[in-house]
């Protein structure tokens, strides 16, 4: 009973404050202030909209176009560079795979040296005359064999 009475009292308090606020509407003291400010803001907004709609001068248009072309070219170059980089790296990888698959025997070492260090023909010819002859003959017949298989050593 007491609790219910308390609840009613509380409701009454809330009701009273709410009706007090409902009866007292906030009022504007200066009725010209808002219309004046709004009209000023409106003018600014209109001029902003007009400047946005204004067609750009030919020089500016040319500059904008050039800028866009430059951006597009940079993107294309970046893509091209990426593709090239990918190709080189993948070729290097496959080369590494091939060289590591060559048997580690004297002829294999020769081939690896030939591939990796790029020994000149003359130095090869001088150091390993018989093998060089064979190597040239073999590679003439099977151009790809040099990298993929080992070379049979002549007795």
């Amino acid at each position: 009973m007491v609790k219910k009475k308390q609840e009613n009292d509380r409701d009454f308090s809330l009701q009273k404050i709410v009706s007090l606020l409902q009866n007292n509407e906030p009022h504007l003291e200066d009725l010209n202030e808002i219309p004046k400010n709004v009209m000023q803001l409106l003018q600014q907004e209109e001029s902003k909209q007009l400047s946005e709609r204004d067609p750009a001068s030919p020089v500016i248009r040319y500059l904008i176009l050039a800028q866009r072309w430059l951006v597009a070219a940079s993107v294309c170059l970046l893509v091209l560079y990426g593709v090239e980089e990918f190709t080189v790296v993948s070729k290097l990888n496959s080369l590494e795979k091939h060289t590591s698959s060559i048997k580690v025997d004297p002829s294999g070492i020769l081939t690896r040296q030939l591939i990796l260090k790029g020994l000149s023909d003359i130095s090869l010819q001088q150091r390993f005359p018989a093998r060089f002859k064979l190597l040239v003959a073999e590679s003439n017949r099977f151009p790809s064999k040099i990298a993929t298989s080992s070379i049979v050593i002549l007795p």
Partner: peptide, 17 residues
Amino acid sequence: NQAFREVVESYQQQAFS
């Protein structure tokens, strides 16, 4: 735009409240 001023003047009190 003057017509808009009329709208502002008519509804400013309601909007402010």
